[in-house]
């Protein structure tokens, strides 16, 4: 059943998101695109764009969007699609909720134990690699249709890397460029 599957996959995604919103993208991409082919890589890219431009943590946005689209794409009506959104969003937050509450009860002050910092010294590079994989996977012929795409990619990369230019404005400028050149 689709709702149970949405719940289970987004629960796993929430549980293994270590290091914030971007760390969630490779997980979502794997579960939703590679594993189930619920959506294509191109649709996933579009969803990330929309999530970036709208308020709210990117993980909540993508979960809500994908929950809706997956159920809607299967031919169900509006109400069930909204229920799909709710299921995915609830499932993605639930692990955080349970674990944070558990931590609240156990810790009185944050404990920089050597085991924790030691494990994080392995996890941080790993998460960086996973996010990198999401970027590499999304370099598809559908997303990069011609040389102009590469110019947009390099320019927005440099701007985001070396200036404090707002990523939302970057996306809006690129949308404008798309309207002009395509």
């Amino acid at each position: 059943m689709i709702f149970w599957e949405l719940f289970w996959h987004f629960f796993i995604i929430g549980l293994f998101t270590i290091g914030g919103g971007y760390a969630m993208l490779p997980l979502i991409r794997h579960e939703v695109v590679a594993e189930h082919r619920w959506i294509t890589d191109q649709m996933f890219t579009d969803m990330v764009a929309i999530s970036q431009m709208t308020p709210g943590p990117i993980g909540i946005n993508t979960a809500t969007y994908i929950g809706y689209s997956v159920v809607h794409g299967m031919g169900y009506g509006q109400f069930l699609s909204v229920l799909g959104s709710f299921t995915a969003t609830f499932a993605v937050v639930l692990p955080s909720f349970l674990i944070v509450l558990a931590i609240c009860r156990v810790y009185t002050r944050f404990n920089h134990s050597t085991i924790f910092t030691g494990t994080m010294s392995w996890l941080r590079p790993c998460v960086a690699g996973l996010i990198g994989a999401a970027a590499v996977i999304l370099i598809t012929p559908e997303n990069f249709i011609d040389w102009k795409s590469w110019v947009i990619f390099v320019a927005s990369f440099l701007v985001t890397m070396f200036t404090k230019f707002n990523p939302i404005l970057t996306l809006l400028v690129c949308a404008g460029i798309g309207l002009l050149v395509y």
């Binding site: 996010i131 970027a135 990619f153 927005s156 985001t160 996306l171 798309g178 309207l179 395509y182």
Partner: peptide
């Protein structure tokens, strides 16, 4: 508009990857 934005999305994912790798 989306044709223009898609490459930028990939760039926006690549940047935090590089920043995290440098820090971690």
């Amino acid at each position: 508009a989306f044709k223009g934005m898609r490459p930028a999305v990939v760039a926006l994912i690549a940047v935090p990857m590089i920043k995290m790798a440098r820090a971690g």
